[in-house]
Nucleic acid binder design. Structure first.
Lengths: 150, 150
DNA sequence: ATCAATTAGTTTCATATGTAACTAATTTTG
DNA sequence: CAAAATTAGTTACATATGAAACTAATTGAT
């Protein structure tokens, strides 16, 4: 008989369930504490890292599509967490920056996110964490060998 | 200064991008070759493993919600890949089984899926694969310690 | 310099999705 | 055993999502 497929042992499935569970856990925190969805948070994370980034830079660095970025940005401006200024150098682009309020939110979320990550990794010892990161890097390289940003 | 958060180094983010990329790759294969979406395929995978399973068994074993299972089942019956018979023991349940045609599709997909997995893991040596599985199991146990099915 | 092609970003539209409400069958409680 | 509570599954509704069309600005080609 041919080799059977047990969904629960199938790596892509397990990875998907694991990742979705984690993403949902984190989404619940962001939503409960700050009323943000994951996409909005990702935009804030990039803009917080790189003030003045444009929407297309955010798109390139978040694996989000440009429509999703556009909507997340609109929502964040609406909330008063982001500003958008036309780029002097290129009239098509806008430069995104956190407002004072947005920076305050950002400064609160970052430690929460890092804490979540620490809690997650607390069950693994330091060597395992290194190993996990190496494995993920290699897998990411297999599935999207052209992408050098992550 | 507080520790910064670099999205591209943040494990939950990396996991999400990796998993979504893999899921999308696979979804493209199923869609192109058989016109199935991921949810339909997952239902077929469970029913193929466990003929006579009910929709709620599928729900429990796929991390899908019951509405998604209901719709996937309806689509598969429509396609002629699945049959639904009321359970003699419990009139609320239906027993799901692959049709001949559905079984033929299933028998074609399983090797494709396993091949994809093999290709993915081909870059890792056998010890790394074991390690990856162990790490995923431990992480899954951290994020959903109550779920014993995966 | 002008026209074509590309890029940034938004809007539109059709579909996908999840929550909640619902029906029907079963189990539990008293 | 009758009423209440639970469970299986579907339907309805409101929102989320992505593909494609669109506008505006820039770059490239001639």
């Amino acid at each position: 008989m041919a080799k059977p497929l047990i969904l629960g042992n199938f790596l892509p499935y397990r990875l998907s369930v694991l990742s979705n569970t984690i993403s949902q856990d984190i989404a619940d925190i962001y939503d409960r504490e700050f009323g943000l969805d994951i996409r909005q948070w990702r935009v804030m994370a990039v803009v917080g890292e790189t003030p003045g980034a444009s929407a297309s830079e955010v798109t390139a660095r978040t694996a989000m599509d440009k429509v999703a970025v556009s909507r997340a940005v609109a929502g964040l401006i609406e909330l008063g967490y982001l500003t958008r200024e036309p780029s002097a150098a290129d009239g098509r682009r806008s430069e995104l920056r956190l407002t004072k309020v947005g920076q305050g939110i950002y400064d609160q979320i970052v430690p929460l996110a890092l804490q979540y990550e620490r809690d997650l990794l607390a069950r693994l010892d330091a060597g395992d964490v290194k190993q996990l990161e190496a494995l993920m890097t290699r897998l990411a390289d297999v599935v999207s060998p052209d992408h050098e940003l992550w």
